Simulated scan of single mutants.
Amino acid sequence: MKVSVLDIQGKETGREVELSESVFGIEPNDHVIYLDVKQHLANKRQGTHKAKERAEIVGSTRKIKKQKGTGTARAGSIKSPIFKGGGRVFGPRPRDYHFKLNKKMKRLARRSALSQKMKSEALIIVEDFNFDKPRTKDYLNVLDNLNIRSKKSLLVLDESNKNVYLSSRNLKTAKAVTVSELNTYNILNSNVLLISEGKLEELQNNLNK
C-alpha cells in the first residue's frame, strides 16, 4: 500500500512511500496487544507497597480486658486487626510485577497496533525535519499545519533530531520517540501516529524480523 508524504506545512510533497502489508495491513491480534500493554504497565510498577500486619505493630501485649463478663467479644491484644491502629489482615507486601513476553509476540503486538492506526486513518508519514534550536512554538506550528494540535500525537523520529524531541517534551498531548523506544502502549495511547519518512524503512525492517 502507498501513502503520500506530507511536509511540515501539511502539504503533499509529491512523494509516496510503500508500506509493508505485513506491518501495516495485518488483522490485529487483540489478545497479544492486551498482553503487551499489560506487561508494559506491570513493568513500570515499583511494587514497594507495604502494610503492617498484626505481628509487625508496635504495642502492648497485655490482655486489654477480662475474658468473660463484659458482654462483648473476648479480646486478647490491642494489635488485633479489629481495633483501630491494629494490624491489617493480609495487607500488601513488596513484590515484583515484572513478567516476560517473547520477542515474536511483542513484534506481533506492535504490528497489530500499527495496522489499527492504518485502518482508522490515524497514520501520517511526514518528511524528515529538524529545528535550529529547541522551541515549543515551532513544534506547535507543525501540529497546527497538520490539523492535529487538539489530538494526542506520537512522533517517531531519528535519534539525531534532538531539537525536535526537546521542542515536544513540554507538551502534554505530544510525544516524540525513536524507533527503538516505540512500543504498543504508546501507539495505542495516541490519537494520531506520525512517522518520519527516513525512519519508516528501519521500523518495517525491525518488525519484519
Rank of each mutant, 00 (worst) to 15 (best):
T48H: 12
I78V: 14
K152P: 00
L207Y: 07
K151I: 00
V5Q: 04
L166I: 10
K65H: 12
A51K: 09
K199C: 13
F129N: 02
E202T: 14
L41K: 15
N145M: 07
S190N: 10
G25A: 10
G10N: 07
S20D: 13
K199T: 15
E12D: 11
R93V: 12
Q46S: 13
E27G: 02
E53D: 09
N186A: 13
N147A: 07
S120R: 14
S115A: 14
R135L: 01
F90D: 05
S22V: 06
V126A: 07
F24S: 02
V156M: 02
N170H: 07
I26Y: 03
G87D: 09
N43Y: 03
G87E: 06
N145Y: 07
K65S: 06
L108T: 10
V192R: 08
A122E: 15
N141T: 12
R135Q: 05
R169F: 10
Q116W: 02
D96S: 05
S150N: 12
K63C: 01
A73M: 08
V5W: 04
K11R: 15
R15W: 08
L155F: 10
A109W: 06
R74G: 08
S20E: 12
E127C: 01
G91D: 07
L35N: 14
G76R: 13
G47P: 10
M105V: 15
L19I: 09
G86W: 05
K84G: 01
K65E: 05
K103R: 13
N145P: 09
T136D: 02
K162A: 14
R45I: 09
G14Q: 12
A42Y: 11
